[in-house]
Amino acid sequence: MNEILVKNKNEDYRVYIDRNMFKLKKSLEEHKVKKGNRIFLITDDNVYNIHKNLIEKFQNNYNCNIISFKPGENSKNYSTIQNIYSFLLKNNADRNSILIAFGGGIVGDITGFVASTFMRGIKYINIPTTFLSQVDSCIGGKTAYNYNEVKNAIGSFYNPLFVYVSTEFLKTLNEEEFINGIGEVIKYGVIKNNKLLNFLDVNYKQILEKQDDELLYIIKESLYIKSNVIYKDFHDKGIRNILNFGHTVAHGIEVSSNYSISHGKAVALGMLVAIKISEKKANLPQEVYKKIEQLYKKFSLPYKYKVDNYSSFLYAIKHDKKNTNGITFTLLEDIESCKIKVNIGEKDLTAALKESIN
């Protein structure tokens, strides 16, 4: 089993990365989680149905209550959070209770926010089950829900007790859901690790076949990159902005498509737009765009997309949390070299869309 220590100024926590769930019990014991603890497992309906046997087995071994909600971005709202608050109170949750997020990024975000606010903060454990959440959102401390068509408008910074990543869950994902995570992995290669990009290029067949060795490598490398960045800037005021590469346009695409375009695919498209802007604003060599586009083709990631609802697209971008004095982008000067907090005009954005993904 691989381990990553995520360091921060308050309290460090561990990420356990393995092929299966066999060592979860040991991880719980290491963190003094006992069978007598009152545990609340939060998931969505799809994950519950797929892993029902595993969930019920856990429930039989621990003092565990379960709540699930409808899957998808449309459930990432305060109504879902209210239902969880009510469920916790009804079942006598207290400050010593422990939440477990069992699902993808939305489940993790919702559970983390509830944990950070219920009774002014209780412990939670993150067990990510999607590729996207395993390589990215399971660490970093960001918790949030969407509000008024603005993605992650309301949220907090709150870390889990620990994270347990198992590649076993990835075997249950369909091809589209699996590919959804590749966009974020490519992002990590672009901003910090060219060797990771080359690994994806050479080993794409094994990765698409979900071979454990390749999956364990890219999960570990992605989380290692992110953990180093967030240690330097936990609250996303400076260098952590590099993790948002591609996300400004991505959030616009997600909102304007009513979330019919998944986050990972939206990030992939957003990176191409950011790369095209970088050619003009940061003197990025044009070869980078071609290299990334070719990599997308190997993984069947989208590299063309037409924004139909441009007003909704622009509204989401203009209300992005990272904006300062206008639309703010993270750009690329070269592979592994980013330039943060660059203001971009609407004309530059429109031109880049036409020259890239449109």
Rank of each mutant, 00 (worst) to 15 (best):
I191A: 09
F178R: 03
I186W: 06
D201V: 03
N198C: 10
I207L: 13
S166P: 09
E176N: 14
N194D: 15
E168K: 15
I179G: 01
E175G: 01
L170C: 05
L200P: 02
G181K: 01
L197S: 00
L173Q: 02
S166K: 13
K192C: 14
L208N: 08
E184Q: 07
T172Q: 11
I186E: 10
I191K: 11
E168V: 04
L208A: 07
G181P: 04
N180T: 06
Y204T: 05
E209G: 10
E209P: 03
G183L: 07
E209F: 10
L173K: 01
E184K: 07
E176Y: 12
F199N: 03
N193P: 03
V202L: 14
T167A: 08
I182N: 03
G183S: 14
Y204V: 02
L197R: 07
N194R: 15
E168G: 01
L208W: 03
N194T: 08
L196T: 00
Y204Q: 09
L173M: 10
K205D: 14
N193L: 00
Y204H: 15
I207T: 11
K195P: 01
F178E: 07
E175A: 13
L173R: 07
K171F: 00
I182R: 00
K205E: 12
F169T: 09
G181T: 00
N180G: 00
N180R: 01
T172L: 10
L197A: 03
I182Q: 00
I179N: 05
I186S: 05
Q206I: 05
D201Y: 13
N203I: 10
K187N: 12
G189F: 07
K187Y: 13
Y188H: 15
L200M: 07
K187D: 10
K205W: 09
I186Q: 02
L208I: 12
L196V: 06
N174Y: 00
F169Y: 15
N198V: 04
K195T: 09
V190E: 11
K171A: 13
K205R: 15
L170Y: 03
I191T: 07
G189E: 08
F178V: 00
V190R: 08
L173W: 03
L170I: 15
F178C: 02
N198G: 06
S166F: 06
V185R: 08
N174I: 06
Y188S: 06
V185M: 10
Y188C: 13
K195A: 13
F169G: 14
L170M: 04
F199H: 11
S166W: 13
V190D: 12
L196Y: 09
F199K: 12
G181H: 05
L170N: 01
T167R: 09
T172K: 15
E209D: 15
G183E: 12
L200R: 02
V190S: 11
N203P: 01
I191P: 09
V190W: 07
Y188V: 07
G189Q: 11
S166T: 08
Y204R: 00
E175V: 12
V185N: 10
Y188W: 08
T172Y: 14
F169E: 02
I186M: 09
E177G: 02
N174G: 03
L173E: 01
E177W: 01
F169A: 05
E168R: 12
I186Y: 06
I207E: 03
Y204W: 12
V202E: 15
I191N: 10
V185S: 07
F199P: 05
N180Q: 06
E177F: 06
T167N: 14
E176A: 13
L170D: 11
V202M: 10
G183W: 05
S166G: 07
D201M: 04
E177C: 00
Q206S: 15
L197K: 00
